[in-house]
């Protein structure tokens, strides 16, 4: 096994997780809500990629972005906004319900289309599955895309957050929503902005994920999102940077543990089927040592909700 190869693949995986983390972290910032339905947003975007079949890549990606943003905004309007002042557990369970709704809706459309097999193939940018060979390294283009998309999206977001008024308002709102509103920051507007951007990021994640998997099914994005949720909290969900780093670390570790542990062996922790246990155990240790997250600032307080 080539360790450099494994490292590069791990960085690619980490980049995808980081993208998902930013989408989750942005919404958490302004709503204090962990959106368990974020994976289904990715799924919606992936179905939008699959839907047109033979459109040019740019067009189907555009459709995916549109679908994810619209789905994200609808979610906000029908569930998050009315429940903003409710108990956090209520909003959380509402995201379960939405996730369940979207997942089963995706299942249902197979019945309507009278199509047996579950899963639609996605051909968008499929050329990127080819690998370039550099010495003994085989790196698929999609790995570069993942890293590049991660960097560009994060860079773009950083510009929005630091250079624009709405970005500043979003940051202020996620630090202290009440005071931000006293200064005239419109709650609905910043929340919708965060939710819309998180939709765009879901679509980008969907593009990257579906290049590797070449298909979409009702569970697309779900497992990744669970890992990312765990990662953002282990990293420190109160700041976007620490949350993103946490998710990157999880993605990186998953890929690395998966390739470095042997393939067989039933005894716990001796083979790569136990990768989730390794990851989760590490997360528990991190949280016990640093409950606010591995990358959180010392003595960081948790912020009140709207």
């Amino acid at each position: 096994m080539n360790h450099v190869q494994a490292l590069i693949d791990a960085i690619g995986e980490g980049a995808v997780f980081a993208l998902i983390a930013v989408g989750i972290g942005l919404v958490f910032g302004v709503l204090r809500l962990i959106n368990f339905a974020y994976g289904q947003l990715i799924m919606v975007a992936a179905y939008a990629l699959a839907f047109p079949g033979n459109w040019p890549d740019a067009a189907s990606i555009g459709l995916a972005v549109l679908a994810a943003v619209v789905a994200s905004l609808v979610m906000e309007r029908i569930a998050f906004r009315p429940l903003r002042t409710a108990d956090p557990s209520t909003m959380l369970v509402a995201t379960f319900a939405i996730a369940y709704l979207l997942q089963n809706g995706a299942l249902l459309q197979y019945t309507y289309r009278q199509q047996g097999g579950l899963g639609d193939s996605i051909g968008t940018l499929s050329g990127l599955n080819q690998a370039v060979t550099i010495g003994s390294l085989h790196i698929r283009w999609v790995t570069f895309l993942a890293i590049g998309a991660g960097l560009v999206s994060l860079g773009g977001l950083a510009l929005i957050l630091t250079r624009t008024s709405i970005g500043l308002q979003m940051r202020a709102a996620s630090m202290d929503f009440r005071t931000a509103r006293l200064l005239g920051v419109k709650a609905d507007t910043v929340i919708m902005a965060a939710v819309a951007i998180s939709g765009v990021l879901a679509a980008v994640a969907a593009v990257v994920l579906s290049i590797s998997s070449t298909s979409v099914n009702p569970t697309t994005g779900f497992q990744e999102t669970i890992f990312v949720l765990v990662g953002v909290v282990a990293g420190g969900i109160d700041r976007l940077v620490s949350a993103t780093l946490g998710a990157f670390a999880i993605g990186f570790a998953i890929e690395l543990v998966g390739t470095e542990l042997p393939n067989s062996g039933a005894t716990p922790f001796t083979s790569n089927v136990y990768m989730p246990s390794v990851i989760y155990l590490a997360v528990i240790v991190v949280l016990l040592l640093r409950p606010a997250g591995l990358f959180a600032r010392r003595g960081q307080r948790t912020v009140e909700r709207v």
Binding site: S165, L168, A172, M175, A180, L183, G184
Partner: peptide
């Protein structure tokens, strides 16, 4: 109507200038 709340409530992690720019939002 502008309120200067009890306990100041400035945004500690933002710069002084960014805090002032936030004041402009209500303008």
């Amino acid at each position: 109507i502008s309120l200067v709340p009890e306990g100041r409530r400035i945004f500690a992690q933002l710069t002084v200038e960014e805090n002032l720019r936030l004041g402009l939002v209500a303008r």
